[in-house]
């Protein structure tokens, strides 16, 4: 048991899992009447903090519904006077990325095409890995796992060029399959850790009982372990969907121009566009790109917290 990242991530996971999100757990001083000077200061600070966090979201939304003349008027706070959906349509269908003017929707679909196989593949591989590491240790399995976790701290830039060469050799460079492969590789440490810790938390006697019952590696995995893993699978899916959707580097390096994911196309629309910038279209495009992870965030709540606590290792 010598994997460096494990302990700390465990701390994070356990803390968030077991104690973090229970609402009755506050330790602070005794509850006091609502309107004491201290409380007013406390809430004021929190409200100011929230303004900082909410301001960009507000600006994005407001700007995306304004017309350009209204934007040039120069009031970033003001709500739209002349409410328009035009920027959204343009962002989706006809904004220019520097080369083509098809809007974000090809990027959206590219992202979807990358997302689904990457998420499934990386989750399946990691689940099997985690299960094997807990229940079917073989000589050296712990060492491989330690290196895997350690490897997750190596900057991607260090490994990216050899990977370009490898994918080129495999004939998949410049296709979505190269991106899928890379996502599977770099998703492996954290997801394996996640599944390994989860399977390790299940009673080992279940596994023993199944062995006595005569079940083998795959049978125990599919009939005993997997049906019990729903919570952790959901966490893994959340983690991977947001992580892969938000990826920029692998998309821009491995996908090839035709297959650029949404984040790359968004950046191209905003930063490489010719002519006078259309801020309303830019903001609509930005919201569109952020929408998928935001929706997942708001739906999943607690599980998201758990996912990112683990996923933060990925950087």
């Amino acid at each position: 048991m010598s994997n460096p990242a494990q302990l700390s991530t465990n701390v994070a996971l356990d803390a968030v899992d077991n104690k973090g999100m229970r609402l009755e757990g506050n330790h602070g001083p005794r509850p006091k009447p609502f309107f004491t000077p201290k409380r007013i200061v406390l809430y004021s600070i929190l409200f100011v903090a929230c303004l900082y966090y909410l301001f960009p979201l507000y600006v994005m939304v407001v700007t995306s519904f304004k017309t350009m003349p209204e934007i040039r008027f120069g009031n970033i706070f003001a709500p739209p006077i002349e409410f328009t959906g035009e920027p959204w349509v343009k962002a989706w269908t006809s904004a220019c990325t520097g080369l083509t003017c098809n809007g974000l929707n090809p990027g959206f679909w590219n992202s979807v095409k990358i997302l689904i196989p990457s998420v499934l593949l990386s989750t399946v591989v990691a689940a099997v890995n985690g299960y094997g590491l807990v229940n079917w240790k073989f000589k050296g399995s712990e060492i491989f796992f330690s290196i895997l976790i350690f490897g997750s701290f190596i900057p991607y830039q260090v490994m990216i060029y050899p990977l370009v060469m490898i994918t080129r050799e495999l004939g998949i460079y410049g296709s979505i399959w190269a991106v899928i492969l890379v996502h599977t590789i770099f998703g492996m440490p954290i997801l394996t850790l996640l599944f390994r810790n989860y399977f390790a938390s299940l009673p080992v006697e279940l596994f023993k009982a199944a062995r006595v019952d005569g079940a083998g590696f795959w049978r125990i995995f599919f009939e005993i372990m997997l049906p019990m893993s729903l919570p952790i699978i959901v966490v893994a899916l959340i983690l991977q969907v947001t992580g892969i959707w938000n990826d920029f580097l692998f998309g821009v390096v491995f996908a090839g121009t035709q297959n650029y994911p949404m984040t790359v196309q968004l950046n191209n629309i905003v930063n490489s566009a010719q002519g006078s910038p259309e801020y309303n279209v830019n903001m609509a495009a930005t919201i569109l790109t952020g929408l998928v992870p935001l929706i997942i965030y708001f739906i999943s709540g607690r599980l998201f917290v758990r996912g990112i606590a683990a996923g933060a290792v990925k950087g």
Partner: peptide, 11 residues
């Protein structure tokens, strides 16, 4: 074999 934690398959 019979185990301390019963080890019944929960699903």
């Amino acid at each position: 074999m019979v185990f301390q934690s019963y080890a019944l398959y929960p699903q």
